[in-house]
Simulated assay, not measured.
Amino acid sequence: MIFVTGPLFAGKREYICKALGWSEEDLARRGIWEVQNLAGQEEDLEKLAKNLAQYEVVIATEVGGGVVPVDPVQRQNREAAGRLACLLAQRADRVIRVFCGLPQALKGELP
């Protein structure tokens, strides 16, 4: 599995489609994105990470930067998203961070 992360609107989906020679339809069939939104809805993050790792590509938007939310639920969701990203990175063969459309290999090599 390839785990791709980076800020909002950084070009994560565009990069991975181009790098793998996939269309948007291929990505929709073989990958999943915006998985950080699933973290706050799932009590068992290990199980969620295991299920998500079945996809060829998993994409998450980084949510840990900036001001910490005052709302306790938002803070909890943000923490869960960070924990999920760590679990996915552990399971991934490759971890790529895309920032301003530029890929950086954090684990493994760029495709």
Rank of each mutant, 00 (worst) to 15 (best):
A89K: 10
F99R: 05
P7F: 01
G64E: 10
E62K: 03
V63F: 09
N37I: 10
V67R: 13
E25P: 02
P69F: 05
N51S: 14
G11D: 06
K107Y: 02
R29I: 12
L88F: 15
F3T: 07
E62P: 06
Q76N: 01
A49N: 07
L45E: 07
A49F: 12
G101L: 06
A105F: 00
F9M: 09
K107S: 04
E24H: 14
P7H: 02
V35Q: 03
K50T: 00
R75F: 04
V57I: 05
G82P: 10
R78I: 00
C86F: 09
A39P: 11
E14Q: 13
L110R: 00
L84M: 06
I32A: 09
Q74Y: 07
A105I: 01
T5W: 02
A81L: 02
V68G: 03
A19E: 08
C17G: 14
R78M: 02
R78N: 01
A92S: 14
F9I: 02
I96W: 05
I16L: 11
Q74V: 03
T5H: 08
L48F: 08
D71T: 04
N51K: 14
F3I: 07
I32F: 06
R83D: 10
A81P: 08
G101V: 06
Q76S: 12
I59M: 08
N77H: 12
S23V: 11
G11E: 06
E42P: 03
V70G: 10
I2K: 11
R83P: 11
E34Y: 12
G65F: 05
A19P: 09
K12S: 09
E43D: 14
G108V: 01
L48V: 07
A49P: 04
D44R: 09
G82F: 00
V95P: 07
V58C: 10
A89C: 11
A105P: 02
V63L: 13
R94E: 07
G82K: 00
P103H: 02
P7G: 14
V73Q: 12
A80Y: 02
G108S: 02
S23T: 15
A28C: 05
F99S: 03
A80V: 05
L102I: 09
L110P: 00
K12T: 08
S23F: 07
F99A: 05
L38F: 13
L84G: 03
L87S: 06
R97A: 06
K107T: 04
P72R: 14
G64M: 06
V58M: 03
G101H: 11
A19S: 12
L84C: 10
A60G: 10
Q54F: 04
A53K: 13
V95D: 05
C100R: 04
K47L: 15
M1H: 11
D44P: 10
